[in-house]
Amino acid sequence: MTEGVKDMPSPKDAAPGGAQVKSAVRTVELLEYFAGNTGMHSLAEVQEQTGYPKSSLYMLLRTLVELGWVETDATGTRYGIGVRALLVGSSYIDGDEAVAAARPTLDRLADDTGETIHLARLDGTNVVYLATRQSQHSLRPFTRIGRRLPAYCTSHGKALLATRTDEQIRRLLPEKLEPLTEHTHTDREELIEELQRVRELGYAVDREENTLGVRCFGVAIPYRHPARDAVSVSVPVARLTPGREQTIRDALMDARDRLTLATRHL
């Protein structure tokens, strides 16, 4: 199963009309599988990952293709996410009050730093990117809206985890963490120690923990507790001097204050 699918309720536990619920759960699981595994996949690949009977899986895929939620390649034998999913994702972001309230501050932070800015939301053990402002420099990181990354190896993810208690973090994360780079924390207790420093400083730092050559600084937006949204500034290490780092931290803390005011009504 793909990440997120394993946490879904079992159709066996559904109320009357279980067959309909089972079909709905399988549909959502398929869409989450394609969303988390880009590119095109054969029926055998999808069947191996989901464990669904091949005949019912084929019929479900064909229905989703007809409705535009899944697409096929020229041969009609490989499947991937369809354009309808983009429409739903765009609708979620367009209608989100926190994203709308944050836009002026994200614009200002991008102007003040000249670097790439991200707004992200905690979703289980991951952060999902909701908005971005690209740096004008030719050397810059690029992250698409909707991308998911483990919270423990991003600055905004760590800023959000730091608003949870140590016990909540232990329940949320496994003891051993999967590394994305050689700098990623792989021990949960070491991460928890760092999160204590994040609480003291008020911001988190990603030291090339998900992308080599890029350092990020992140702060949580405290309009909810524990926080669910955070903003970050990403900077190529080659452009990051001590003075530059201080300027970015100051701008980020100012942005946090502005975002706190902008989202106080939510």
Rank of each mutant, 00 (worst) to 15 (best):
109 L>V: 05
104 P>H: 08
79 Y>M: 05
172 L>T: 09
89 G>H: 10
75 T>G: 12
133 R>L: 12
125 T>E: 08
98 A>R: 15
189 E>A: 15
97 E>G: 08
163 T>H: 02
99 V>P: 02
180 L>R: 06
179 P>W: 03
94 D>I: 13
151 A>L: 02
183 H>N: 11
193 E>W: 04
142 F>G: 12
172 L>F: 11
99 V>C: 03
103 R>A: 14
165 T>Y: 09
101 A>M: 05
190 E>Y: 10
107 D>R: 10
84 R>W: 02
107 D>M: 06
119 L>S: 06
133 R>N: 08
191 L>Y: 14
173 L>P: 04
80 G>S: 14
186 T>K: 04
138 S>F: 12
140 R>M: 05
128 V>H: 05
175 E>K: 08
113 T>K: 03
128 V>T: 10
119 L>V: 10
76 G>R: 02
93 I>Q: 07
153 C>F: 04
107 D>F: 06
76 G>Q: 04
129 Y>F: 15
141 P>A: 11
156 H>L: 13
78 R>E: 09
171 R>V: 09
175 E>L: 14
156 H>F: 14
81 I>A: 06
146 G>H: 04
137 H>C: 13
114 G>L: 02
114 G>V: 01
150 P>E: 05
156 H>M: 15
75 T>C: 05
182 E>N: 12
110 A>R: 03
104 P>A: 13
174 P>I: 05
131 A>S: 13
143 T>R: 03
110 A>D: 02
121 R>N: 07
157 G>E: 01
175 E>H: 15
148 R>V: 07
184 T>I: 05
155 S>V: 03
122 L>P: 00
168 Q>E: 15
88 V>W: 08
128 V>F: 01
165 T>I: 07
123 D>Y: 08
153 C>E: 03
174 P>N: 09
152 Y>N: 06
89 G>R: 05
109 L>E: 08
129 Y>W: 10
184 T>H: 03
126 N>F: 12
169 I>E: 01
88 V>N: 07
84 R>H: 06
191 L>C: 11
144 R>I: 11
183 H>K: 10
76 G>L: 06
149 L>F: 14
88 V>T: 13
176 K>D: 13
88 V>D: 09
170 R>E: 13
118 H>C: 12
166 D>P: 07
171 R>W: 08
128 V>E: 11
149 L>P: 01
120 A>T: 02
100 A>S: 10
109 L>T: 03
108 R>L: 12
90 S>A: 15
100 A>N: 09
116 T>P: 07
146 G>R: 04
88 V>K: 09
95 G>P: 00
168 Q>K: 05
125 T>Y: 04
110 A>S: 15
106 L>D: 01
188 R>W: 03
118 H>L: 14
188 R>A: 11
192 I>F: 06
191 L>D: 05
105 T>W: 03
119 L>K: 00
